[in-house]
Design a protein around this nucleic acid. Structure first.
Length: 558
RNA sequence: GCGCCUGUAGCUCAGUUGGAUAGAGCAACGGACUUCUAAUCCGUAGGUCGCAGGUUCGAAUCCUGCCAGGCGUACCA
């Protein structure tokens, strides 16, 4: 709808210029068409006459009038056009043109809302990538929900999307994990050793030690310490990783690729990239360590890649990792990190530029932290002390649908308060059910309608003459906006726009549904019933599509 | 100190790339179930958009400086 109108206006400006009524414009003015807040200002409005006023050296209202005079509305899209305020042009869409939206929704069905902006482009989105040193917690849940939904939204706008999880299965934190498990293992066998404070303290370490003991017996005691630690580390990381994968299944998140950090070492990729950069003097030696000249590429200082003790830093493998991503030829590479990693962005960007890649293709989105509450009171969380609420506990307690919806309901740049009590409530506080209820209600209407003989209703041109109530028109206009909501959500990488739109559509439907005396969907009037059934089933399609982007189910009954 | 994020109704938050009269939900108050599902709806009330300047036809939105909160600022991950 908006595109058609945009075409009309651009065409009008061109013909006004051709007729000599306006000066040629270079570059052509950017078109902002928007839906006014106030209904009496029309279905769409544009400020284009005002932005053209200065370069044209004419009054905005005068320009607006000229543009309107040159609109050639051959398809009778518009019922009225006028100039208002300081120079807005307000457009009123002809009533019967709106109803075609319903036809489009039904025809496109699960594809309604998809678009082509990303067609032919490959995007990789890496998210979550939690270390296999402990179970997923609530904060991970937010990253998972946001990443997964962004992937779905990008996919809906035509991109070929690859979701990847980077597994930090190497390095110091894995060794620490091994040490922690070994100590607990030894304790189980009666040895009196304390768990060092820098080790992982969580009770899941005890559980892992117990499983290890049950499965393999006491033989680890006889191994040299290094070997025992390595063995424990492998065992624990594998077990924890299995758990993470199970949690992700329960949360409805899937990855196309799992990328191992260890692989970057085993394949020699890390050493190779270090050698290469060293030969180009981008990596240099100082105080016995190897430093990357990140400062020359926008970071505030140079960063260590290999420490004086010979161990590589996390940054070293990340350089090789991002090189690998670029070598896989994606048009866009997106990293989604927790906001506590934001200080890390400049050095990774620096390394990408230092390697000669196009830094514009790389974007990092930082997800702000989650504050877990219960009944308004903060729940203490500390990974190191092992006090945290796991994602699994949240899924078990509030359900996957509620958890995902609530994680998505906030702009990712805002910290999120996640209240467990609120998430469980089946009331107005909890928008998940509010939206899902629409799907259930409409499903029920369709079931009832079928019992009365209304089935598989097709579009009929009469519908535009039947569905004329203001509420019905309002619903249709709302439905017309859906594709743009998805497109905008993808363009701005802001998934929260989808649930907000869903709430709005749900509210409009509930209000419509509730006034049954005025507009009951299924009645004795066959034509009216058919038209309204067509209307509500279109709403159901959009609700289902939107929820599907969020990974939230659309129940038939509640 | 420096960097990133945030600041809008009592609370939790939206706000269409700078538009016309500031928007929801919750909480509060008053109403609606003989119904296609009340997990719903209708109404009332609630605002110095953190503060101060600036940019222009026009600012919650952009710029500058403050104030407050969160996070970060390792030869940690």
């Amino acid at each position: 709808m908006k595109e058609k109108l945009g075409f009309l206006v651009r065409h009008a400006i061109d013909s006004a210029v051709a007729a000599g009524h306006l000066k040629p414009i270079d570059p052509p003015p950017s078109m902002v068409l928007e839906i006014p807040k106030i209904a009496t200002h029309g279905d769409f409005s544009t400020n284009i006459a005002m932005t053209m006023a200065a370069p044209q050296n004419r009054a905005p209202k005068e320009i607006a009038r000229i543009i309107i005079d040159h609109i050639e509305d051959r398809d009778h899209l518009l019922s009225k056009t006028d100039v208002a305020g300081p120079g807005f042009i307000n457009f009123f869409i002809a009533l019967d043109r709106w109803h075609e939206v319903l036809k489009a929704v039904h025809q496109e069905d699960t594809a309604y809302g998809t678009s082509q902006a990303g067609l032919g482009k490959r995007v990789q989105i890496e998210f979550l990538s939690a270390n296999p040193t402990g179970p997923l917690h609530v904060g991970h849940g937010r990253c998972a929900a946001v990443g997964d939904t962004l992937a779905a939204i990008l996919s809906a706008t035509g991109y070929e999307v690859e979701k990847e999880y980077y597994v930090n299965d190497s390095g110091r934190q894995i060794r620490t994990l091994g040490e922690s498990v070994l100590v607990r293992y030894q304790q189980l066998l009666g040895k009196t050793i304390d768990l060092p404070a820098e080790n992982y303290q969580g009770s899941y370490i005890n559980d892992l030690a117990r499983i290890l003991l049950d499965q393999e017996g006491e033989h680890l005691l006889e191994l040299p310490e290094e070997e025992a630690i390595t063995h424990c580390a492998r065992f624990a990381a594998m077990k924890i990783f299995e758990g993470i994968r199970e949690d992700l299944v329960a949360f409805g998140v899937s990855f196309g690729h799992w990328f191992s950090e260890q692989f970057l070492y085993d394949s020699g990729a890390v050493q190779a990239v270090i050698q290469d950069l060293k030969s180009r003097d981008i990596i240099y030696e100082h105080d016995g360590a190897l430093w990357f000249r990140t400062k020359d590429f926008g970071d505030e200082k140079d960063r260590v890649v290999v420490r004086a003790n010979g161990l590589t830093t996390y940054f070293a493998s990340d350089i090789a990792y991002h090189k690998d991503k670029f070598d896989r030829k994606f048009d866009r590479i997106i990293d989604i990190w927790g906001a506590d990693h934001h200080g890390y962005v400049p050095r990774v960007s620096a390394s990408i530029r230092a390697l000669g890649y196009d830094g514009d293709r790389f974007q990092v989105f930082l997800i702000q932290l989650v504050n877990l509450l219960r009944g308004g009171k903060p729940v203490a969380m500390s990974t190191r002390a092992g006090e945290f609420v796991t994602l699994r506990e949240v899924i078990d307690e509030v359900g996957r649908d509620a958890a995902r919806f609530l994680f998505l309901l906030r702009h990712y740049e805002s910290p999120l308060d996640f209240d467990l009590e609120l998430a469980k409530k089946q009331s107005n506080d909890n928008p998940v059910y509010y939206v899902q209820y629409v799907h259930a209600r409409i499903s029920n209407i369709l079931k009832k309608a079928e019992e009365r003989g209304y089935k598989d209703i097709d579009w009929h041109d009469d519908f535009s003459k039947i569905l004329t109530l203001p509420e019905e028109l309002q619903l249709i206009k709302l439905m017309a906006r859906y594709p743009e909501v998805v497109a905008r959500s993808a363009r701005l990488m802001e998934p929260h726009r989808v649930p907000f739109y869903m709430k709005e559509l749900a509210a409009a439907f509930h209000a419509y549904y509730h006034d049954r005396n005025k507009h009951k969907v299924v009645s004795d009037d066959a034509k009216l019933s058919a038209a309204r059934l067509y209307l509500v089933s279109a709403i159901r399609i959009i609700i289902k599509n939107g929820l599907s982007l969020m990974g939230v189910s659309a129940p038939e009954t509640m």
